[in-house]
């Protein structure tokens, strides 16, 4: 450890601060295109949590905890689960059963794509569920890594 305490060198910090927004954008791309390309909520969430892990490695757990508190991450995760359950129950009330895809066939969200086309507003409720699961996985895995890093830092002293 150098005089900065938990931080790594300035090269690693610069590269991490360049790579972090790119990784978050890629994670959001994988989540939002889950119904068109390979990937989905869990995969994109794992990529976003890896971006947060990179930030923890470069800047130290204390700094990241000051920027994004673990309570906010926990609230983010619970919000994702709530959206999932609410959309599922809406399927019960607006259509046949629990988890029915009630938006498919609608003009705004439920376009059925032709061969070789990939419109973003297709798939009915699948993008919403992808977004919910992605929020859940990003919040959950990032908060686990953050909590473990802080706990191991406190255990060192």
């Amino acid at each position: 450890m150098n005089e900065n305490g938990d931080r790594m060198s300035i090269i690693v910090q610069t590269i991490a601060s360049i790579l972090f927004p790119l990784a978050l954008i890629f994670s959001f791309y994988v989540i939002m295109h889950g119904h068109l390309t390979p990937g989905g909520g869990f995969q994109g969430g794992a990529i976003g949590a890896s971006a947060v892990a990179l930030l923890i490695v470069a800047f130290g757990a204390k700094y990241v905890e000051g920027k994004m508190e673990e309570e906010n991450l926990s609230i983010f995760e619970s919000l994702g689960g709530l959206v999932f359950v609410i959309v599922s129950i809406l399927g019960f009330f607006l259509a046949a059963t629990f988890l029915t895809n009630f938006l498919v066939g609608e003009p705004l969200f439920g376009i059925i794509p032709a061969w070789g086309e990939a419109p973003l507003n297709s798939g009915g409720v699948l993008p919403i569920l992808n977004l919910a699961v992605g929020m859940k996985v990003i919040g959950g895995l990032a908060s686990v890594v953050l909590i473990l890093a802080i706990a191991s830092k406190e255990g060192e002293k």
Partner: peptide
């Protein structure tokens, strides 16, 4: 035709077998 999603794996995971995804989310939580 049934789900409107181009990716068949996502349509299986989130539509046909949505209960599994709900259970997975519960396990993660």
């Amino acid at each position: 035709n049934e789900t409107g999603a181009n990716n068949a794996v996502t349509s299986v995971v989130f539509d046909y077998r949505g209960y599994d995804t709900l259970g997975e989310a519960t396990v993660l939580f």
